[in-house]
């Protein structure tokens, strides 16, 4: 007997409708069929109730508006989890709970939303963190670019120190957890501004495991900083300015993938300023450098960890490099993001 298939208004359109944001049946159906399977333990109450934890809490928030939504090596869903988890990890906190807020554009294919939410679930599991509460709103077509995500994250500090630029001391070693520039170039490839023989994959990944491993092994860490939009150079300038010290690196020691270097030559980019999403700088006492590198290299995401330089005293707030030719160069903050140039 052929089953009667009644035209279900929800399935048929296969797209997000304004009504999905209306708080009524369609919204609940969206939550049941899209969000519940992926983010099962997220409450449908007004707020999640969290168990007491011992130790200070770290709390962060971030928004993700990346275009396109999918790129080699990741998507807006996994990126949202990694970005939030990494912000907590940079304080030396064990990430525990995330909140996720979606702004959906009317007309977004449901299939796209399902893929992104599934990717979010996988990334959360891999970083062993839970999405405990969420929210969804829908805006008219054209008022946003498919989908935006806002997150917040809570982690617990298993130590009593405050990591950050103010803890950095003259003579400290500067370590870098991996090669730079892959995220920025992968996104350009996804916008088909660049095509590769072998695709360049974003380095989007959680850094919490290697960081927690360092701290649990008792390695004395002064400052951790994940490199994001402004790349390695901007992160170093921020640290130098807030620590009022002079960060000096050797450019030759900074790993850059060949295809990333090729793309930077073509676009006129300096790889030190290209975006990353799974790479960090670790600044710690000279004596701890070797031990930290050995531990970091045991984790896949930081397997290429390398020492790139040293913290000096004067002049305060400066970042300089020794180039491959032995000459020296000053790194400054760009006034805006790098744009492809012809001159």
């Amino acid at each position: 007997m052929t089953s009667l298939v009644c035209p279900n208004p929800f399935e048929e359109s296969g797209r997000v409708l304004l009504a999905h944001g209306g708080g009524g049946r369609l919204m609940h159906r969206l939550i049941e069929s899209v969000f519940r399977p992926a983010l099962g333990n997220a409450t449908d109450l007004d707020a999640a109730v969290l168990p007491p934890t011992n130790g200070r809490l770290a709390f962060t928030t971030d928004s993700f508006v990346i275009k396109p939504l999918f790129f080699p090596g990741g998507d807006i869903g996994s990126l949202a989890v990694h970005g939030t988890v990494n912000d907590l990890a940079m304080m030396g906190a064990r990430p525990l709970w995330l909140s996720v807020g979606f702004i959906l554009e009317e007309g977004l294919p449901l299939e796209t939303l399902k893929r992104i939410v599934a990717s979010m679930r996988q990334a959360a599991q891999a970083a062993n963190v839970q999405v405990v509460v969420g929210d969804t709103k829908v805006v008219e077509h054209g008022r946003c670019d498919g989908l935006y995500v806002n997150t917040s994250g809570i982690g617990v500090l298993g130590h009593d120190r405050v990591l950050g630029p103010q803890a950095v001391r003259e003579g400290d070693a500067i370590l870098l957890s991996g090669d730079v520039g892959r995220h920025g170039i992968a996104v350009l490839a996804a916008r088909n501004e660049l095509e590769f023989e072998v695709p360049v994959r974003s380095d989007s990944a959680s850094l919490s495991q290697p960081v927690l491993d360092l701290l649990e092994a008792g390695v004395e860490v002064h400052c951790l900083r994940d490199l994001t939009r402004g790349g390695l150079a901007t992160a170093l300038v921020e640290i130098a300015r807030s620590s009022a010290l002079h960060l000096h690196i050797h450019e030759e020691s900074v790993p850059v993938q060949d295809a990333v270097r090729g793309a930077c030559e073509l676009l006129g980019f300096d790889p030190l300023y290209v975006a990353n999403e799974g790479c960090m700088v670790v600044i710690l006492p000279e004596a701890e450098a070797e031990r930290a590198l050995t531990r970091l290299r045991q984790h896949e995401v930081t397997a290429q960890a390398v020492r790139i330089g040293t913290v000096l005293a004067d002049p305060p707030g400066a970042v300089t490099t020794t180039t491959a030719l032995g000459s020296r160069r000053v790194l400054d903050m760009l006034s805006g993001e790098q744009l492809p140039r012809i001159c």
């Binding site: 660049l194 095509e195 590769f196 023989e197 060949d258 295809a259 270097r261 090729g262 030559e265 073509l266």
Partner: peptide, 8 residues
């Protein structure tokens, strides 16, 4: 044309 892995 191949520029160290980038094709254009």
């Amino acid at each position: 044309v191949n520029f160290s892995g980038v094709i254009r």
